[in-house]
Computed example of a mutant assay.
Amino acid sequence: MAVRLYQFAISHFCEKSRWALEYKGIQYQPVYLLPGSHIKTIKALAGTSSVPVLEHDQEVVQGSEQITDYLDRTFPDNPLTPENEDERAQALAWERRLDEEAGPAVRCYCYHHLLQRPKVVTPLLTAQTPFYNRYLVRLAFSRIDEVMRNWMKINEKTAAQSMETMTAVLQDLAEAYQSGPYLVGDRFSRADLTAAALFAPLFQPAGYPVPWPKPERLPQAMQQWLESQQSALAPLIAQYERHR
């Protein structure tokens, strides 16, 4: 049975799973969904509405960490999980911290600013879906803005807290990368993949399947903070250049 990945193009958690599949050389069918209208499809598959969801050989795997586990078990070539027990524990610890802290913080911070620019965020939300979704989102944007902010608890206060969280995590990553090109051991692992994928919306890598806005179209406050983080983001950009 074909491997299918149900996803949002813009989601950095979905980017984790896209990257894992492609790094391991696995052919798969991407199924791009529109946020909101995806709920019925994903609940029917997995019981809850979060993406990414992988479908393969009657197996349904939900969540980027669980998908990486499944891929390493089922397709052992180019492993992302270290074999050494200590290194494996370190890689998983990095991944869980990044999933729990960095992922939600990047999402909250970016959406807080980008939802203020409907013409910028609409192409990101609708990327890789039928063209008419762009018009539907534009027509319903005020309601979409309200629902997203309420659902993800996005506001001025949480965006400021998210910026502090991202700054702290990026500082810790930058310090870790001073010891070598990888977070764990001497090879690329799920820790590096997670760090780079979850922070990718901040440096807009080529190949990510969305039409990134030009930097000058971002809100000024966002531009200024991103400028201040360029040196901390550099090791993550390097992971894309080497391994994506």
Rank of each mutant, 00 (worst) to 15 (best):
L92W: 11
A93M: 08
W94V: 03
W94G: 00
R97L: 08
E101W: 03
E101G: 04
E101Q: 07
P104D: 05
P104N: 04
V106P: 02
R107T: 01
Y109T: 07
C110T: 11
C110H: 02
Y111W: 04
Y111G: 00
H112E: 13
H113A: 09
H113P: 01
H113F: 04
L114D: 01
L114R: 00
L114Q: 01
L115M: 15
L115Y: 14
L115A: 05
Q116T: 09
R117W: 13
R117P: 06
R117G: 04
P118F: 01
P118V: 02
P118L: 03
V120D: 03
V120W: 08
V120I: 12
V121M: 00
P123G: 04
P123Q: 06
L124P: 02
L124W: 05
L124T: 01
L125R: 03
L125T: 02
L125Q: 07
T126D: 11
Q128D: 06
Q128T: 09
Q128R: 10
T129D: 15
T129H: 12
P130C: 08
R134G: 11
L136R: 07
L136F: 06
L136K: 09
V137A: 15
R138K: 11
A140F: 09
A140S: 14
S142W: 14
S142Y: 07
I144S: 02
E146I: 11
E146C: 15
E146P: 03
V147Y: 09
V147T: 14
M148N: 10
R149I: 13
N150A: 10
N150F: 07
W151H: 13
W151T: 09
W151R: 11
K153H: 13
K153E: 12
I154F: 02
N155S: 13
E156Y: 15
A159T: 00
A160E: 11
A160V: 11
A160R: 07
Q161K: 15
Q161I: 01
Q161H: 12
M163Q: 13
M163E: 10
E164D: 10
E164M: 12
T165P: 10
M166Y: 14
M166N: 14
T167Y: 01
T167L: 04
A168V: 03
A168P: 02
V169R: 03
V169G: 01
L170N: 05
D172S: 05
D172H: 15
D172Q: 15
D172N: 11
L173W: 04
A174F: 15
A174K: 12
A174W: 07
E175R: 10
E175W: 13
E175M: 12
A176T: 04
A176Q: 06
Y177M: 03
Q178G: 08
Q178D: 08
S179F: 12
G180D: 04
P181R: 09
P181C: 12
L183E: 02
L183Q: 02
L183V: 03
V184W: 12
G185P: 00
D186K: 08
D186S: 12
F188S: 14
S189A: 05
R190K: 15
R190F: 04
R190E: 00
R190D: 00
A191P: 05
D192F: 00
D192G: 11
D192V: 09
A195I: 01
A195C: 06
A196N: 00
A196K: 00
F199P: 00
F199S: 05
A200L: 09
A200S: 12
P201G: 05
P201S: 14
P201C: 15
